[in-house]
Simulated assay, not measured.
Amino acid sequence: MKSPVGWGKRLAIVAVAALAVFSTALPHASAEQLAKILFGSQKLPAATAAKSYGFYSKGCFSGGLAIATDGPTWQAMRLSRNRRWGHPTMIRLVEKLSRDAVADGWPGLLLGDISQPRGGPMLTGHASHQIGLDADIWLTPMPDRRLSAVERENVSAISVIKKGGLTVDERIWTAAHARLLRRAASYGEVERILVHPGIKKKLCETVKGDRGWLRKVRPFWGHDYHFHIRIGCQPGSSGCKPQAATARGDGCDASLAWWFTEEPWRPNKNPDAPKARDLMTMNSLPKECRAGLEAPAPVSEATVTVGGGGTAVAAAPAAPAESITIERIVGAPPVAASAFAPTPNLGVPLPRPRPAD
């Protein structure tokens, strides 16, 4: 997820143009059609049991809920994207985090993207967020007033990383940021939290006492103005593909130090190469995704909105939890690197890499 000013306007232009061409093909999705067009056109979820199909970056889900645009302890941003949807477990977890964060002293959450109503690849932005189990939370505290619809489209989140650098900006970073991340990591459902490497480094240097929760906090490109929560495959979703296990320990080791070398920040040699979402057809996704596209929708969004006075609709019965693991996303780092070494002068530009979370 990116946060440039005017993102919502550009997304709207892309969506309108794309849907004008492809909307006549709905609801019967062929194997050759681009999945991002078909899923990006859906306004409401599939009114079936809550299930996730496939992997975080190649799948879909049904029976989703939307978090209300406004709650007592949160505000949803970029409303034009219609990405406030997720598996009921994820939506309820975000609402719970907002309440607990306020109790911890955070003013309230500004919510970024969760998923599209039926998941699937998006017209723009994320590689993941496809199965209703990912959510982005801004690192900018919620203001003490309700933002207008225009502000929610154009106000930019504030990066906590020094401009052009790799470490946190001490003028912006606070102990409250660390408490917020710790609270998010405290939930058993949360398998992983993606942050900028500089944030992980700061936590490694400053967290005292219990450091076990740091294992869930993983460094990744982008994520300097928001953090990404990922929960595991939920009961009843036998078609959901879990991730491989994270390494043991708190992650404050050579795997973190790799991010402070030149290698991960080298400019992309082929920036014009198409993204996976630009090539992904319905034939690329689990077969259940086609049925999910053609499934009937609820009567209205009001029947599937949770929080802020909305109605929470449970879609899946309880069942034994599955064991979820995390995939390794980088190659072996230099053994001699130190996670606590000063940030090197890389001698190359530090581009803002594509988010591929």
Rank of each mutant, 00 (worst) to 15 (best):
G64T: 05
L180H: 09
V304L: 02
M282C: 12
G63F: 08
A127F: 07
G108E: 04
R192F: 01
D70S: 12
L26C: 10
P342W: 10
A247T: 13
I114Y: 01
P355N: 10
R354L: 02
G236H: 03
L111W: 00
P353Q: 12
R78P: 00
R182D: 01
K36S: 15
G125E: 13
R352F: 10
G165H: 05
G331P: 03
C233G: 03
N283V: 01
T73W: 04
K201Y: 02
L110K: 06
P235T: 03
P353W: 11
A302L: 08
R211A: 13
Y56S: 10
R145I: 02
R99S: 13
G59F: 15
C233H: 07
R84L: 04
W258G: 15
V190Q: 10
P355G: 07
I231D: 04
E153G: 11
I324F: 07
H126E: 06
I161Y: 00
S238N: 10
P351V: 04
D104N: 09
V5Q: 06
F22V: 08
R171N: 13
E205R: 13
Y225C: 11
P320V: 09
A135S: 12
A47L: 06
V217Q: 08
K9V: 09
R81I: 05
K163W: 02
S300M: 06
W259F: 13
G6Q: 01
R192G: 02
G8C: 14
G132C: 06
F55M: 11
E294M: 05
A127T: 11
D104Y: 01
A31Q: 13
W106M: 05
K163G: 00
I326A: 03
R118Y: 00
M142L: 14
V335H: 14
H129K: 01
M142G: 04
A46E: 03
T281H: 06
E191R: 14
G8I: 11
P274I: 12
A356D: 08
R99I: 11
A273H: 14
V14G: 02
P344G: 13
A341D: 13
D113T: 15
L350Y: 09
G249E: 08
P355A: 12
V304T: 13
A318N: 02
A25F: 07
S284P: 06
G71T: 02
T261R: 15
S41M: 14
V195S: 14
R84Q: 11
C233P: 03
L279R: 15
Q243L: 12
H87L: 10
C233E: 08
N270H: 13
P320D: 04
E262D: 08
T305N: 03
E288M: 02
A254N: 10
T124R: 02
K241D: 08
L93G: 03
V94K: 03
Q116L: 14
W85K: 00
A176Y: 00
K269L: 04
T89I: 13
M142Y: 00
A15W: 14
E32K: 11
P334A: 06
P351A: 05
G239L: 05
R81C: 00
P286Y: 00
M90Y: 00
G232E: 08
G86D: 00
A18G: 13
I67C: 07
L147Y: 06
G40D: 05
G132D: 05
S323P: 00
S323Q: 09
P286H: 04
S80H: 04
S338Q: 14
A314R: 14
A46R: 02
A315P: 05
P121H: 07
R230T: 09
Q234T: 14
A18Q: 12
M77D: 03
S128N: 09
P296D: 07
